[in-house]
């Protein structure tokens, strides 16, 4: 096996995640990277590209297409195995947990491929964390909006100051052992029922 730069194909319909991964691979000195977003004519593109490493996310149903292609088809010139080393189950497990799978041309040395796999796993995990944080931030924002609306309703209907309206909500939440946002939501719902 020569030391020519490794050619990597990334199959991921999620543009943001693919960009995060590409960025990581480039930072690790890998430059020959092709991102494949749509899976139509996937086989033809891969045959033309002839990559050393194929990375695919697990949400992609086309994973089964790759399995057939790599194992049975006469279309690929070089045999491809999944992951680097079958004895390295912990890294396969980490990949599956991160939601990604990699196929690697047979005969590539482990030292060359392992950093790619590790980078992929860490970038996929980083992306999931980012997504989780984003959805948490979104729901926090939603909650704040509901509380604001409930405060407004109380201020208007009971002629309270903003501070008192908030205190009333919080006290009710404590009395009923509920979350502030739940009490706020019931105020908003009740107000809409009473046509306010």
């Amino acid at each position: 096996m020569s030391q020519a730069p490794l050619r990597i194909a990334v199959i991921d319909e999620n543009q943001v995640r693919a960009a995060i991964l590409e960025d990581g691979l480039r930072a690790a000195g890998l430059t020959d990277i092709t991102i494949i977003r749509e899976t139509q004519s996937l086989l033809r593109r891969l045959v033309a590209l002839d990559p050393d490493v194929v990375i695919i996310d697990l949400e992609n149903p086309s994973r089964d297409v790759l399995e057939q292609m790599f194992h049975v088809s006469r279309m690929v010139s070089r045999p491809v195995a999944m992951f680097v080393d079958r004895s390295d189950t912990s890294s396969i497990e980490a990949a599956i947990e991160a939601g990604v799978s990699a196929y690697i041309v047979d005969g590539l040395r482990k030292e060359r491929v392992k950093p790619i796999l590790d980078m992929t796993i860490s970038r996929f995990n980083a992306f999931s964390k980012l997504q989780r944080e984003l959805s948490e931030a979104r729901s926090a924002l939603e909650e704040r909006k509901i509380v604001e609306r409930a405060k407004g309703i109380l201020m208007k209907s009971r002629n309270l100051s903003e501070e008192d309206a908030y205190r009333l909500l919080r006290q009710s939440a404590m009395n009923e052992k509920k979350k502030l946002v739940e009490i706020a939501q019931s105020v908003v719902t009740a107000a809409s029922l009473f046509g306010k």
Binding site: L58, N60, D64, E67, I92, E93, E97, S101
Partner: peptide
């Protein structure tokens, strides 16, 4: 799930 490969791997790796 979306693929038989995933079914196999998620079963093999205890998910």
């Amino acid at each position: 799930d979306v693929s038989w490969s995933n079914i196999r791997d998620r079963l093999t790796f205890r998910q």
